[in-house]
Amino acid sequence: MLHRALRLDPQVALRDEPFGALAYHYGNRKLVFLRHPDVVEVVRSLDEHDCVADTLTACSIDERRWDAFETAIHSMYESEMLSDRAG
């Protein structure tokens, strides 16, 4: 997962909230809670970097937290909030 090129799915809208953000997928009607501002920042910038790992580095996420981020990103990918990016 860390070496894939991902992006926020074009059908997903993000809304900032006090705890982080809400993500809503207009296609499958799923609502996901992004429960930390850092997760929101990472998800928003996935598009600008070659892979997930690069994004985490660019967002200065401490390596000790990478496992937790990978889990969160994986579950968002499973619910189609994140999708593969060509190229």
């Binding site: 809304r15 900032d16 909230e17 006090p18 705890f19 809400l22 609502l31 809670f33 429960r35």
Partner: peptide, 16 residues
């Protein structure tokens, strides 16, 4: 859960 506690404080806009 922590999430439920956070939600009790209210949101920028309603979900439902």
């Amino acid at each position: 859960t922590v999430l439920a506690d956070q939600l009790k404080g209210g949101l920028e806009a309603p979900i439902c």
